[in-house]
Amino acid sequence: MNKIGRQLKKGVIDILILKLLSIENMYGYQLIQELDNKSDSVFLMKEGTLYPILYRLEDNNLIESYWDKEDAKRKVPRKYYKIKDEGLNELENMKEELDVLFNAVESIMNLGGV
């Protein structure tokens, strides 16, 4: 993927993570797998890319993390992320902004020419 494609993906990753967390609480690797599977590998990322985004979303009070010690199959606790009310509000705002952006892009792309 070229530089512009990478920048476009970067611009929407927050909304995709918030959307997934609005469906269910997830741990980091689970988020990576869901992004990969649901996007046919368009949003394939490594842990080193995901965790700084999660930390930033947490610092911005949109998500919170917690440790799950209840999983009897695992000996090690797993860190989960969940969306907060502020994150749900921000997700709605982002969806509205994305709709406006897509409509504007579509209007221009439907002009005559190439």
Score class of each variant (00 low, 15 high):
residue 64 E to G: 02
residue 113 G to L: 10
residue 97 E to D: 07
residue 3 K to G: 08
residue 14 D to Y: 07
residue 8 L to D: 00
residue 39 S to H: 04
residue 82 K to N: 00
residue 48 G to T: 12
residue 16 L to A: 06
residue 13 I to K: 04
residue 78 R to G: 00
residue 32 I to A: 04
residue 72 A to D: 06
residue 32 I to H: 02
residue 82 K to H: 05
residue 33 Q to K: 08
residue 81 Y to G: 05
residue 40 D to S: 03
residue 13 I to S: 10
residue 80 Y to G: 09
residue 114 V to T: 14
residue 69 K to E: 11
residue 19 K to T: 11
residue 84 K to E: 05
residue 90 E to P: 00
residue 25 N to M: 11
residue 4 I to G: 06
residue 64 E to T: 00
residue 44 L to A: 14
residue 100 V to F: 11
residue 91 L to F: 03
residue 93 N to S: 13
residue 114 V to N: 14
residue 51 Y to D: 00
residue 49 T to Q: 11
residue 21 L to W: 02
residue 81 Y to L: 02
residue 73 K to T: 08
residue 90 E to S: 01
residue 113 G to T: 05
residue 52 P to K: 09
residue 33 Q to L: 15
residue 81 Y to W: 03
residue 8 L to A: 10
residue 94 M to A: 10
residue 21 L to F: 00
residue 25 N to V: 07
residue 77 P to G: 13
residue 59 D to I: 03
residue 55 Y to F: 08
residue 32 I to D: 06
residue 100 V to G: 05
residue 98 L to D: 04
residue 114 V to G: 06
residue 37 N to Q: 11
residue 47 E to A: 13
residue 15 I to K: 11
residue 101 L to K: 00
residue 10 K to Q: 13
residue 44 L to H: 15
residue 47 E to R: 15
residue 66 Y to M: 10
residue 94 M to W: 08
residue 105 V to N: 03
residue 10 K to T: 05
residue 73 K to G: 07
residue 96 E to S: 14
residue 62 L to M: 10
residue 63 I to H: 00
residue 101 L to H: 09
residue 4 I to V: 10
residue 70 E to M: 06
residue 43 F to K: 13
residue 111 L to E: 14
residue 24 E to A: 13
residue 49 T to E: 12
residue 59 D to M: 05
residue 1 M to N: 05
residue 56 R to Y: 04
residue 57 L to C: 05
residue 38 K to P: 01
residue 22 S to D: 07
residue 19 K to P: 05
residue 64 E to C: 03
residue 94 M to D: 08
residue 72 A to R: 09
residue 43 F to Y: 15
residue 6 R to G: 08
residue 92 E to K: 15
residue 114 V to A: 11
residue 100 V to E: 06
residue 101 L to Q: 04
residue 41 S to C: 01
residue 17 I to L: 14
residue 98 L to A: 02
residue 29 Y to L: 09
residue 78 R to V: 14
residue 6 R to Y: 15
residue 87 G to N: 01
residue 51 Y to K: 06
residue 86 E to F: 10
residue 53 I to G: 07
residue 109 M to L: 14
